[in-house]
Design a protein around this nucleic acid. Structure first.
Lengths: 194, 194
DNA sequence: GTCTATACAGGGATAGAC
DNA sequence: GTCTATCCCTGTATAGAC
């Protein structure tokens, strides 16, 4: 039992340290030694748990994905109206505490671009995210066209978050919410739907 | 004269090789040795021209920026109508040949995040791009609100290009153009402008 | 201006002890 | 399960020759 606790704690510490250092120094720039040291462990423990630096990276990303989904779902439930729900999506990527995760996502993206296996994992993860967004209209009417536009919604969130980061004043909340609103609400009202 | 040609060619070869390898293997993953070798030169020549790996990176990005602006401007001139002009913007980031530059931009972004000097250069570059976009309405009426929305336009282009890359079928041209159209044409027609 | 050779540092991963 | 010690490779940058 004590053993189990110690093992679990080591794993958790390593994951937290890796998330920090990958985001801060990049995947290549964060040494396994530095990660282990920050977790108050050594490389031996790290390799015992994850086997390689890349598997550690995957574990970090998987854990993050679960946490992020939970947080966003809770925020959506808490919101009172359509605009607030869109605003909470925007806040999820634009708030200061998200910078770290945006940095990590950037790293993962670069990494995946030259690693087919990692790219496949990344692709699957995004498809799952899109599918999650496609479920939103079942609960909230304002997300009517979230299904078909899901990839664009994610892309817009990511891209605007990037601009927000180079220059926080450049993207106003109102601008972001308005752009999202256009994507989630049915755009075909003026179009060719019979 | 011969000397001058040789020097200029060396510089050009090094820049091209660096652009290739930075995009392909990342900034950290591309060694100065590999870059020099691909340019049919040696590290000596590289350091003679650029002094450091980072200065080489800046030179690569600066050259790219000039080229890209020229190409996009030409495409805009060639287009016949509003929709084609928006489509040409989308094509500029979504066409297969742009993948390389998107990869490089990703690398630069990650690099800048942990290098204040590089971040400042990146920021300036984006502000300049936004200013360039803000000039568009002077020539084309459909870009009426491009000024205020310039950062969002760039962000949306970047973000959708990313999604397009994980899964090319996920973002249709029509979807991209419609989203851009919403951003460039005045959004206040239905709003509170008296 | 460009090459060759080298100084100097750091990283990922493994072996063997406890 | 975790630590210490070590192997082996690769990288940036510089010095000195031509």
């Amino acid at each position: 039992m004590r053993q189990h606790d110690r093992k679990a704690e080591t794993r958790a510490r390593l994951l937290a340290a890796a998330a920090d250092l990958f985001a801060e120094h990049g995947i290549a720039g964060a040494s396994v030694d530095a990660i282990a040291t920050r977790a108050d462990r050594t490389v031996g423990a790290l390799y015992g748990h994850f086997g390689s630096k890349e598997e550690l990276l995957f574990a970090v990303v998987d854990e993050w994905l679960g946490d992020a989904a939970t947080v966003v779902a809770a925020e959506l439930e808490l919101a009172d109206d359509a605009e607030q729900r869109l605003a909470s999506l925007w806040r999820a990527v634009s708030q200061p505490s998200s910078e770290r995760w945006l940095a990590l996502e950037h790293e993962v993206w670069s990494h995946a671009r030259r690693n087919p296996q990692a790219m496949e994992r990344l692709r699957r993860r995004y498809v799952e995210t899109w599918e999650g967004i496609a479920m939103l209209p079942l609960q909230w009417p304002e997300f009517a066209s979230a299904g078909t536009n899901a990839p664009a919604i994610v892309g817009v969130l990511f891209g605007m978050a990037m601009m927000h980061q180079v220059s926080p004043g450049s993207i106003t909340d109102e601008m972001a919410v308005r752009t999202l609103h256009h994507l989630v609400s049915s755009p075909d009202t003026e179009g060719a739907t019979p």
